[in-house]
Design a protein around this nucleic acid. Structure first.
Length: 568
DNA sequence: ATAGGGTTAG
């Protein structure tokens, strides 16, 4: 015990000065900390670019014929520009002619212009068009407003949408409100949606099936089916009949609450409500049956729907294929896929991907590639998930170079690599000791505007640690703070492992303390790595004490403990 | 306005 230099951090460890550090659960044990390298605090947040108006009004050829100051000829040019998709020229024309002209612009091309600008995310420019219409003395109609409001909603500017709703120069219609409901509900702002509903009723605008369906769906998610049912009653009372979609939304809610049998009853009662279930109704129930392992029920439901004349869709089959693949029943999944055309369905990439994934998981990459060829020969092109599956399989099969090659070809194959594609290959490279090459890909990825996540860093940090480049690994972990990425236990563990392997168990313990101070819960591996480290440096007794303590706390499993002892 | 969303890290 006295071999331990007093300056080191070990003593407090072996003196069993154990103290719970993390309040909630706590398997964290307290080691004395010593200071860690100062972490750099970089904040490189680029501010999102705001749409700006192009204000330059220097002569555009197509404007020359329209120097008559906002008259019929001007509108003709405006229509042509909008029709040809020359949005910026149309905008300039509006600014230069109609803003001060005597005749107002035609609101129909203006509405198209607003729609076009919104589609490319330029809501500020679109709003400018609306403002020009208003100041030029023309009055936008409800459609113009609806297009603008929908543009705001799609770009997430719900507050702007609401402001515009309140200052429209014509009464909003049910479409205006439904657009806003949809957007508020998607963002979980259900309270606000109900406020708007009050507003709608005050203005004597009657809600329709869409209105209620949107609200019922959101209510199922936020407050449960029980509350949603009240809305369904209210809907009935107001003389608005629910349709299949309304019922499907409710059935989906019931399934999500784990009440599959109630959902089935609802399905069976639907005809008595005057509404027949459709494929989607069945698919919702089918999915729920599969995910709860009720395979026989699923098979029966499938034959039920066929006998009722409700034809299965691609989704129906994909649900079944997915389920079978998860259960490892690849053969049956393939049979189903092959039978799809008999039911008038063409398999898509979502049909093939689970099969490819299962084959890869079973290390049958050659068969997966054969199947890929079949898929392509049938006109179904691989998507990014297909490629990601292959990239992962290649890496796991020791063909990292092939994976690198494939990754570089993705764009020319019509598939843009995504974060997961890079993560798969970066991980593959890191695992075979080619961390520098992995770092190169990481740079390339960032150059393409893809932001690395915790998994990317997890692979890189582990790669660096394995190569003995622990300093770099540690610095990378410290840098994550400025990037709003919380390192996981996996990341900390790999650094701790790297330090232990380098016979720097004291620093490993410091890093452990740092991990705990950052609020990251250690795992069983964390402790096992540290214990192995202690053993390697000749502190077997201390390791055993610690192990006993951890075992008595239930942090370490008995088998893990026996394994360590057996190796000593 | 409803169903499939699969693929990556110790």
């Amino acid at each position: 015990m006295d071999v331990l230099a007093p300056t080191k951090t070990f003593p407090s460890l072996v003196d069993s000065n154990f103290r719970l550090q993390v309040p909630h659960n706590s398997n964290a044990i307290h080691f004395t900390t010593s200071s860690l390298p100062k972490r750099s605090s970089r904040s490189k947040l680029s501010s999102p670019s705001t749409p700006t108006l192009s204000t330059h009004s220097n002569g555009h050829p197509s404007l020359s014929s329209a120097n008559l100051s906002g008259d019929a000829a001007g509108n003709e040019v405006l229509r042509r520009l909008v029709r040809n998709g020359e949005l910026d020229s149309a905008l300039r024309l509006l600014e230069s002619i109609f803003l001060r002209g005597t005749d107002p612009p035609d609101i129909i091309p203006c509405t198209s212009l607003i729609r076009g600008l919104c589609r490319s995310g330029r809501t500020a420019a679109a709003r400018r068009v609306l403002d020009i219409i208003e100041t030029s003395g023309a009055s936008p109609d409800v459609i113009t407003y609806n297009v603008m409001i929908s543009g705001y909603c799609k770009s997430g500017e719900t507050d702007e949408a609401l402001n515009l709703l309140h200052r429209m120069s014509v009464p909003p219609d049910v479409v205006t409100y439904n657009t806003i409901f949809q957007s508020l509900c998607e963002r979980g702002k259900l309270d606000k949606a109900f406020e708007v509903l009050d507003h709608m009723l005050h203005r004597a605008c009657a809600p329709d099936v869409f209105t209620y369906t949107i609200l019922i769906e959101a209510t199922c998610k936020e407050s449960g089916v029980g509350h949603a049912m009240k809305l369904l009653d209210e809907m009935h009372a107001k003389g608005c009949a629910p349709d299949v979609v309304t019922y499907n939304v409710v059935i989906n809610g019931i399934c999500k609450e784990g009440r599959l049998d109630d959902a089935i009853k609802f399905l069976n009662n639907m005809p008595s409500y005057g509404c027949n279930p459709n494929v989607i109704t069945h698919n919702i129930i089918l999915r729920s049956m599969c995910s709860t392992g009720r395979w026989m029920d699923a098979e029966n439901l499938l034959s039920d729907m066929v006998s009722k004349g409700c034809n299965p869709s691609v989704v129906t089959f994909n649900i079944l294929i997915n389920f079978l693949c998860r259960k490892g029943l690849i053969g049956r999944a393939m049979d189903i896929l092959e039978k799809m055309p008999e039911h008038g369905c063409t398999p898509n990439s979502l049909s093939y991907n689970p099969l490819l994934h299962s084959l890869c998981k079973d290390k049958k990459i050659d068969r997966a590639i054969e199947y890929l060829d079949i898929m392509v020969s049938r006109g179904c092109y691989p998507d990014i998930v297909t490629y990601n599956t292959l990239l992962t399989a290649l890496c796991k099969d020791g063909k990292v170079d092939v994976a690198v090659e494939l990754l570089s070809q993705l764009s020319s194959r019509g598939c843009r690599p995504v974060l997961i594609s890079y993560n798969a290959v970066i991980d593959g490279l890191s695992k075979v000791g080619k961390t520098d090459e992995a770092l190169g890909l990481f740079k390339e990825m960032e150059g393409k505007g893809l932001k690395a996540d915790t998994i990317t860093y997890s692979s890189l940090v582990a790669g660096l640690s394995r190569e003995g480049r622990v300093e770099e690994a540690m610095n990378m972990v410290l840098e994550l703070q400025g990037l709003h990425i919380r390192p996981t236990a996996i990341i900390y563990n790999s650094v701790i492992l790297g330090l232990c392997k380098a016979r720097e168990t004291d620093r490993a313990i410091d890093f452990y303390a740092y991990m705990v101070s950052r609020g990251c819960m250690p795992t069983e591996s964390t402790y096992m790595i540290l214990i192995e480290g202690l053993v390697h440096e000749g502190f077997g007794d201390e390791a055993v004490d610690l192990l006993g303590e951890l075992y008595s706390r239930g942090v370490v499993k008995k088998t893990s403990m026996q394994n360590v002892v057996a190796r000593m």
